[in-house]
């Protein structure tokens, strides 16, 4: 499968936040979005997820165009900035609630996803008692638990400790291995180099460079 972003422009209240973006993303590859604050990394992720509508241009998932043949990619897991989980639910209960919407996975897979990010599936603490890093880990688990074909992780590791980063790398590796398209945005250049196979540099809503990570 591939994702095609074709001449995608998005203006919000007169400001151009994505400017004629062209991009082709392939299965089994992890793309790293790089760029300054406000350059448009998160916005491009929203565009690919179908969460915003283009002012012009389009996104195609396989041969289906978002907003025309499809509202949202059929199989996608998203972690954007700060997702709001329910304060009074445990991590597991939060994921269960989300998983039950589609009913594709059961208790076993949810617990596996929690373990994979280094959270204890049996932890009885409520989400509001979680530390920042734990919250971020739960966000990653929510994005990958259903083993989607597209995985989008917006700054997944900025609050996560070294041990956790190793686990995230493993998760990304596994996702690529099963043929998923993975997109990661990250501030730390070195970390991004390690996570991603290809670096997409964005500046002022434009893609300025696309190259292999070394």
């Amino acid at each position: 499968m591939e994702i095609i972003v074709n001449d995608y422009t998005k203006t919000i209240k007169g400001a151009t936040v994505l400017d004629h973006v062209n991009l082709k993303l392939h299965s089994g590859v992890c793309y790293g979005f790089k760029g300054k604050n406000g350059s448009g990394k998160t916005m491009l992720m929203r565009a690919i997820s179908g969460l915003i509508n283009p002012s012009s241009g389009y996104v195609k998932i396989g041969d289906k165009q978002l907003g025309k043949d499809l509202s949202f990619p059929e199989s996608i897991g998203i972690l954007l900035e700060n997702p709001a989980f329910l304060d009074n639910y445990t991590g597991y209960a939060n994921l269960k609630l989300l998983a039950d919407i589609q009913g594709k996975i059961k208790e076993k897979e949810i617990k596996e996803a929690l373990s994979a990010v280094g959270l204890d599936p049996e932890d009885k603490r409520k989400y509001k008692k979680y530390s920042l890093g734990m919250k971020q880990k739960l966000g990653i688990a929510a994005a990958v638990m259903e083993k989607p074909e597209i995985v989008i992780l917006d700054e997944p590791i900025n609050a996560i400790d070294e041990e956790g980063v190793v686990l995230v790398k493993k998760i990304i590796f596994e996702a690529k291995n099963r043929g998923a398209i993975v997109i990661v945005a990250c501030h730390d250049k070195e970390e991004l180099m390690e996570l991603a196979d290809e670096i997409v540099e964005i500046s002022a809503g434009k893609i300025v460079e696309k190259k292999e990570a070394v």
Binding site: S49, L51, S71, P83, F85
Partner: peptide, 12 residues
């Protein structure tokens, strides 16, 4: 706050 978690799962 929760639409990025739920909306793609609802698909609609």
């Amino acid at each position: 706050e929760r639409s990025s978690l739920t909306i793609p799962r609802f698909q609609d």
